[in-house]
Each structure stands twice: as structure tokens, then as C-alpha cells.
Write a protein that binds this DNA or RNA. Sequence first.
DNA 1: GTCTATAATCTGATAGAC
DNA 2: GTCTATCAGATTATAGAC
Lengths: 222, 222
Amino acid sequence: MENSRDQGRPGGRKSAGGKARRQSERLIMNAAERIFAVRGFSGATMEQIAAAAGVPKANIHYYFGTKKNLYQRLIRDICEEWLAAAQSFDDDVPLRALRGYIEAKMDQAWERPYGSRLWANEILAGAPFAAGYISAELHEWLLSRERIIGRWIVEGRIRPVEPRTLIYMIWASTQHYADFASQITLLNNGKALDKESFLAAKRSIADIVLNGLAPLSAKNSP
Amino acid sequence: MENSRDQGRPGGRKSAGGKARRQSERLIMNAAERIFAVRGFSGATMEQIAAAAGVPKANIHYYFGTKKNLYQRLIRDICEEWLAAAQSFDDDVPLRALRGYIEAKMDQAWERPYGSRLWANEILAGAPFAAGYISAELHEWLLSRERIIGRWIVEGRIRPVEPRTLIYMIWASTQHYADFASQITLLNNGKALDKESFLAAKRSIADIVLNGLAPLSAKNSP
DNA sequence: GTCTATAATCTGATAGAC
DNA sequence: GTCTATCAGATTATAGAC
């Protein structure tokens, strides 16, 4: 009656499993995200991850098979979450869409900084695992938003700027607060940025960008 | 007559040596910069660096002693070069100082992309080697420029923004073109950004930032 | 100074007891 | 499912011939 396909290494079923499995996987993935974010794929060791998760090394292999596999799961996870922020760029009022997007990206940098850093590390390494996702979903999203921004420019609703540069600026400026957190901390007398300073930065970034885009007419008078 | 302190491993003299030494060191450092930039300190291997430099592994140890030592030399080198760009933030006309600085940072991202990426990797890792430099020289520079920007605001020459956020935005936006080059390439149909697109991005970033800072009065009319 | 060979340690992965 | 013990290969560093 027992089906041997279903025990032992994962993969027998799609990726289901009891709550014990799910719980262990979550524990390991959280630890792995931190370690990979700091050391990169090749720099991280399974032992460091095991120690951070508080489990024996062998358990990680039991649940994820290989280091590569574990890493890929995280990349996929981060891509999926990224889509959430991407959706917030969707109002038809330029300044509202852009402010919403900037705020969503900043919230993400605050709430899941290690995800952002893992991504940065992956890109620095040449995007060996994320390339497919970038060329497909991300590229598509980028093109669609460029079209929207282009339309706003034609309609005179924002100042003429290169849409792509604008989007890169938003990515860079928001992710900076996660990716360069250790530098920011050192420049803040060794104290990590508190929530208030972070919120101030969020507003400030949005203000600079949005003022930079305000059309020549319709100046914002008090 | 011969002094044994002066042969064998470096360190006998400060860091002098014949042209052969200097040439070999330069060759190895260039290769190491590329490898460390992509894999990070712990992810890079001496063998990869040796292969990239086209020398036997043992030679690297002969010239630099340890991996750590080689890496530290690079960090120092990059810090020093960074100071050059920092100097360009020095005009008393706000828009000129800022545009000059943005352009200097962009030029650096173009000319020495691996230096920027190595730095990014170091920060992601928690700045274990660069911490001292960041807390001292970089912090000092940052404070001095914040004072200048603050003065401009008081004098009504630029819109009131958080000076630190502004500087972080400039760092992030310019370094993005070096650090995230692989992502940018993938989003550009697999072709690296050419010089023209890069120059366009440089102008575009400066435009957005500077427009974002233009004071409420004295609007730029045609 | 340059290079091959090798020592000492670390790392990903697995075996197999519980 | 969990954990200890361990293997095979990689990795930093050195020894020593040339």
C-alpha cells in the first residue's frame, strides 16, 4: 500500500508535504536568504546556512537536494515577490503611479532587505540563475511601463525624460537602502537607520524624482 | 653586503621593487579586480584569479602573500580613486557642482566598472574590509558636502531636500550602471549598453536630479 | 623570479544509524 | 524525519626545484 515514490527526497510529489516539511523548509530558506545575501552563491557555505537555521547540514540536503537547488528556490521566491511591487505602478495619474511604485519598492527594501541583497549579489555575479526571469517577465514589465511613461510625455503630463533611465533611477535609489545598508549604517555613526529616518528618505526620494518630472507648465504652487 | 630583508616576500621594503614586480602586480591586480567583483571575496578563488591573469597560482602568493592581502590592496586602490570623483563636487554653483559630480561618478562607472562592483560586493558582505575607510574619509566627505548643500537650501538656491538622501540617490543611480550592468544588458536584448546610450543616461540622470532640485522661484523658462 | 608538486584544511554531498 | 560520521573533491598556502 505504501508508495516509495513519496518518501525520502523531495520531488516525489510536486513540492507538497506535511506542515513539518513546510515549516522546516521555511526555516532553512530564511536562513539561506541571509547567508546568500551576504556571501553570494559561491561564497556561502552549507555549514553557515545550517548554523544560521539551527539544523544539521544534512537536513538541508534532505529538503533541498543541492545548494544550487536551494538557491534557485530563493531566486524564484524573490522574483515572485517583486511582481507584487511591480503591480503598484498602475495608476493613470503619473505622480500617483510613480509615488506608489517608489513607496512599494522602499517598503520592500525595509521589510525584506536580504531578498534585495541576494538579488544584488546574483546580478553582480552576472545573473547566472536570474537571467531567464530578467529577459522575460522583467523585460516585458519594463517595456509596458516605458510605453505608459512615453504616453505621459506625449500628453505633456510629465517632463520629457528617458523612461528607462527613470525606472533605473527608481530601482537604484530604492534598492540602495537595502543593498548598501551596511554602508548607510557606518555613515550613520554605526546605528542602523531607524524607521523614521527611513520614512523620511522614502518621502525625500519621491519628492526629488517627482519634482524632477513635473511638467514645465502647471508648476506646483503652494 | 646583501640584505636578506629585501628579497623574497614583499614587505621588506615598503612596497617598492623593480619594474618587473610592478608590472606583475598590476597584471594580477587587474585580474583580481574582475574576479573579486563578480564572485566576492569568499567566492573568488586564487586559481580563478591566476587563470585570469595568466600566471601560476604560486606567483600571486609570491607577490601578495595571502588572498586577504591582495583583496585589501584592491580595496585601498578603489578608495583612493573614489576620492578623485569626490573632488569634482566642488563648484559653488549648485547645479554645476552636482552635474559635475554626477558626471564624474558616471564616467567612473564606465571606465572602471569592476572597481564599482567589487565595492558593491564588499558592502553587501557587510564591509568587513572597507568599514574603517567608510567611517573616516567617506563620512567626513559626506558631512562636508551636506553642509554645502544645506547652505544652498538656506540661501534658496535649491529646493529643500534632505542632503543625505540626495547624495545617496546620486551614488545609487550612477553606480547602478556598473553594478547592475548584467541586468541592464539583459534588458537591452543581451547587448551591453553602448557609449551613446550611456551618455544619454548620464545626461538624463543629471536632468532628473537637477530639475528635482530647481528652486520654486527662478523656474527654467525656455 | 617562476613554476610544479604537495601539504593542510574546507566544502558539498551522502551513508546509514536512530 | 533527524542526525553523526565520512568521503571525494576543491581551495589556500607553502616547499623547493629551476
